[in-house]
Design a binder for these strands. Structure first.
Lengths: 150, 150
DNA sequence: TATAAATAAGATAAAATAGTCTTATAACTT
DNA sequence: AAGTTATAAGACTATTTTATCTTATTTATA
């Protein structure tokens, strides 16, 4: 599995938020219902993203979570690193600590190339751009295919 | 993490075996010491690979494990699928079951491309070829960098 | 035939990840 | 000020992955 479940949930939530109006807080309850993710579990993941300043939260009635300016201008790569850490993009494919260009494992060069392409995929578009494209192309986000870009 | 720890161990063992003479069984004890992997854990992983006919085992003194013909002609992709299953190469990056070309998630096309490049990386060379290249280029395989292609 | 050397298999334990539940805290509403 | 609505935080549980330990079973050899 490329990304942890926490990370996948975090990405779904990020895209969900990006599809919403910039300036309103969306409650975690709404998100967890809309994305069919456990409320408390999602809460924790969002806390990681808020503490990375990619989202901000507000307590009380009409409170919730929204993307910060930084978050909207960020890419999925930033979200992934905030949740799963940077290891995927730094480590040897065979997990060999000393692997490097001067002492390469059999996969070293190929993996460097491949993991760069993963990284590029994740940083190709900002969340704002993903949201814009989503509205045009009517992407789906939910498991039942019913997500509305609104 | 792209590959599970079991899978990484399995790949290391596969490459280790590929670097050895075709026709002799190598004991798991030797491998686990040489690769610094827990003996019993490695045993179970190798059982998965033998039951996929990528390796064969022999009990008793001078027994051990060796690659089958099929195994030598296989690629790391076959080893990966035998251990981690095919999910990495079939699933949506956001884990959305209904995601497909007609109902794509925001990452669908990019991920299809990227995961294909992962797959191509893993099936570029057979184990025999990796071993050959390893001897020429003196790749390393152990954590301490001391692996000998012999 | 007995012993030793090896894998096979099953039980158990430990650690990491995923998920739930409860209580605290903040902010709005009346 | 009291009640309500929301996130924050911590404890707890469940599941999966990783790792270990013990007991078979197979095979060679003395």
């Amino acid at each position: 599995m490329l990304l942890s479940k926490s990370c996948v949930y975090g990405l779904r939530a990020s895209i969900y938020l990006a599809s919403k109006k910039d300036d309103t807080f969306i409650s975690i309850k709404e998100m967890s219902a809309g994305l069919n993710i456990s409320f408390h579990f999602l809460t924790k993941i969002l806390q990681q993203l808020t503490s990375a300043n990619l989202m901000e939260s507000y307590k009380g009635p009409n409170g919730g979570i929204k993307l910060t300016k930084k978050g909207r201008d960020s890419t999925l790569l930033d979200m992934v690193i905030a949740i799963d850490g940077p290891e995927l993009f730094t480590q040897c494919a065979l997990g060999l600590p000393g692997c490097g260009s001067k002492d390469p494992c059999p996969l070293h060069d190929s993996w460097l190339e491949t993991r760069t392409s993963i990284q590029e995929m994740l940083e190709r578009t900002t969340l704002d751009e993903i949201a814009k494209e989503g509205k045009e192309k009517q992407f789906r986000l939910m498991e039942d295919g019913n997500f509305q870009w609104s």
